[in-house]
Computed example of a mutant assay.
Amino acid sequence: MDLGLHGKRALVSGSTAGIGFATARALAAEGALVTVNGRTQARVDWAVDVLMGEFPGATIKGITADLARREGCETLIGMLPEVDVLVNNLGIFEQKPFDQIPDEDWARFFETNVLSGVRLSRHYMKGMRSRNWGRIVFVSSESALQIPNEMIHYGMTKTAQLAVARGLAEILSGTGVTVNSVLPGPTASEGVVEFVAQMAQTRGVDVTTVEQDFFTTARPSSVIQRFATPDEVAAMITYVCGVPASATTGAALRVDGGVVRSIA
Rank of each mutant, 00 (worst) to 15 (best):
T178S: 11
V114F: 00
R135E: 08
T209A: 14
R129G: 02
E170M: 14
S181A: 15
S116E: 02
E104G: 12
R166T: 07
G250S: 12
R69T: 12
V87A: 09
V44R: 01
G176F: 09
G78D: 01
A28W: 00
G53P: 00
G62D: 02
R135N: 09
P148F: 08
T40P: 07
N180M: 12
A188V: 03
E170P: 10
G91S: 11
V114Q: 00
R25Y: 03
M151D: 04
A65V: 08
V87P: 00
V118H: 03
G250L: 10
R203G: 02
S173L: 10
N89G: 01
F110E: 13
M199D: 10
V36H: 02
E150T: 15
S116M: 03
G31C: 02
S222V: 05
V48H: 01
R131M: 05
R9F: 11
A17Q: 15
R226T: 07
L33F: 08
G242K: 04
G134H: 05
V34Q: 00
E82K: 02
L3V: 08
L86D: 00
T157E: 09
V85I: 15
G53N: 00
R39I: 09
V34I: 03
Q95H: 14
T35P: 07
A28F: 00
Y154N: 06
G127P: 06
Q95G: 12
G242T: 00
G250V: 08
L162V: 15
R166E: 11
E74Y: 00
A160P: 05
D231E: 14
L145C: 09
S15H: 09
D2S: 07
M128G: 01
V192T: 15
T229R: 04
R166W: 12
A22G: 11
S173E: 14
M79C: 02
L145P: 09
I152N: 08
Q146D: 15
L3F: 10
F195P: 00
G167V: 00
I136M: 04
R69F: 08
N180F: 11
G38Q: 04
T59S: 07
A251G: 08
P97N: 13
E190S: 12
P244R: 04
R70H: 11
M79K: 06
V164A: 03
A107K: 14
A144D: 13
A160K: 04
I147W: 01
D105M: 15
T216V: 12
A29G: 09
E94W: 10
N37C: 11
T35I: 03
T35Q: 05
T159G: 15
A228D: 02
L67F: 07
T217M: 03
D84C: 08
N88D: 06
G257W: 09
D103A: 12
R9Q: 14
G204M: 13
I152V: 15
V118F: 06
K61T: 12
A197E: 14
F215V: 07
T16P: 06
R69N: 07
Y124R: 01
V205F: 10
G72W: 02
G117W: 01
L120C: 08
I92S: 10
T159W: 09
G18M: 11
R119K: 12
A47D: 02
